[in-house]
Design a protein around this nucleic acid. Structure first.
Lengths: 266, 266
DNA sequence: CGCGCATTTGAGGACTGTCAACTTCCGTGG
DNA sequence: CCACGGAAGTTGACAGTCCTCAAATGCGCG
């Protein structure tokens, strides 16, 4: 493993602010692995032995039931995934597969759990990480239950724009059928949703989407800071916002989207 | 605050296995409060100053957007809620309101965060709690994206049965319009979903639902351990199952439902 | 150039939401 | 104890949203 890779891992919110010793313990048995595209890394139901750290490429998390399948998240570097299952030493609830050639660091779950026991700062970091993931999922559910497909797409495009800091031209990062599933619709309906957004200044050419009128699009999308992580807060920026910045990367990958229970609720 | 209440709090997964000192620190500034029904405890967007522990009554968590509203979870005792926001010292993403007369312990967020810094076991407990919450939400999203409304209701009923250990007669714990929103449909459609389930041996009389044929209902519902926390695992019961038992209470409140981001994904 | 796959488009149907009227339930007040 | 009012729940008619199937188009790679 290259030193530069370790640096990238260390820069993860999960590991910044953690003692050097802890970091060494946590990454002790880790190994770097390369996967071709379209490779299954993990099947839902499998025991989870490693924490995965995506260093390069794209990974899709998806779930299945009764011959139906849905994309739950799409990750881009640098991201960890499957942390919750590692913490609980439980079976995976989502399958993971590479969408393209990937470089992935695999950290033994035992090492993670040991590090948590040794270093309260690391435990804190894990908690903060999971809390951010949880809140990402809350946003996702609100997005799905409160908006229709066109509204979800509109907000997704605005989130992409915010993440890439692009002017009025954004580039889709994944195939449209994958995006459709992530947004909870069929490829056919994604197509129609794009068509519907033409009336709001949106034109599509392959993966390149031009937003001719941000105002018109926002009027339809009504982005909300309590759903869309990119949406502007009303008042002053407070310190707490800092903590949430963690989510920016996931959000980047899943704009309008993002990452529990009777004894606990976020 | 009665000693028996403290005992109930201590029996929460969040606090079992935690040093007595830590427990004292965490619950130092806590105070017990009673609320009438239909009272707003917290509005989405508000800063979160307390971890809430529901000791008696029912609390609903919901979200709003653009004049639409949806129920995200319904809690029953003993449950903590809003832990993720406390850990991050962030604004609430969900509103909370009592559905009936409630008794709630409010623990200052500072105390929780301090305890996490002092005691790695508590940090671990918080992580495990949040991991369970996260996984509950993953289940919820799969439930919503992969199933239609009738299938969701069928699984909800089966989960209720499993949680209450009732034979073929289950009692709904909340108003049907609240249940409808939790399951992601309108009250009218919940009514129709119940009607559709008549063909599968389900009859409804007020809050009492009779499941005449579990087999027929399961054939439709196809409960899945990777979505429904109650569903039977295939093979042997493994140790990890233990960890997940945490979720049972939330799951009890939200059967067929139950408990992250580019830099972390569960 | 031709094949395969992704995407698009059209037609039709299934599912879900909306509106309105009706029924039932429950608590209040007579 | 009963009558009443209001809210919850149900039912029907209708519309909007979304899915399915099929066919056409477009793109990329051999």
């Amino acid at each position: 493993m290259r030193a530069s890779d370790l640096e990238r891992v260390k820069s993860l919110p999960l590991f910044t602010d953690v003692a050097a010793d802890t970091f060494r313990v946590a990454t002790a048995g880790a190994h770097l692995q390369r996967f071709p595209g379209n490779t299954v890394l993990l099947l839902e139901g499998d025991p989870v032995d490693f924490l995965y750290v995506l260093l390069d490429g794209q990974v899709e998390l998806h779930g299945t039931w009764n011959d139906r399948e849905t994309v739950l998240a799409i990750l881009r570097p640098v991201s960890t995934f499957i942390l919750a299952a590692v913490v609980l030493d439980a079976e995976a609830l989502m399958s993971a597969r590479t969408l393209e050639r990937c470089e992935i660091l695999m950290i033994p779950g035992d090492a993670i759990r040991t590090a948590m026991r040794l270093d309260p700062r690391f435990g804190m970091a894990v908690s903060r990480d999971l809390a951010g993931c949880y809140r990402g999922l809350v946003r996702t559910i609100k997005n799905h239950k409160l908006r229709n497909s066109t509204e979800r797409l509109a907000n997704y495009l605005l989130a992409l724009r915010a993440a890439d800091n692009s002017g009025g031209v954004v580039r889709l990062h994944h195939e449209k059928r994958v995006l459709a599933s992530l947004l909870g619709m069929t490829p056919e309906n994604l197509s129609r949703a794009f068509a519907a957004l033409q009336q709001h200044g949106v034109t599509v050419e392959g993966a390149v989407v031009t937003l001719r009128s941000i105002g018109a699009l926002e009027a339809l999308a009504k982005p909300d800071p309590l759903i869309d992580n990119h949406a502007p807060r009303g008042g002053e920026i407070v310190a707490e916002a800092d903590a949430e910045v963690w989510s920016s990367e996931w959000y980047r990958a899943n704009p309008s989207d993002a990452s529990a229970a009777g004894k606990r609720h976020g």
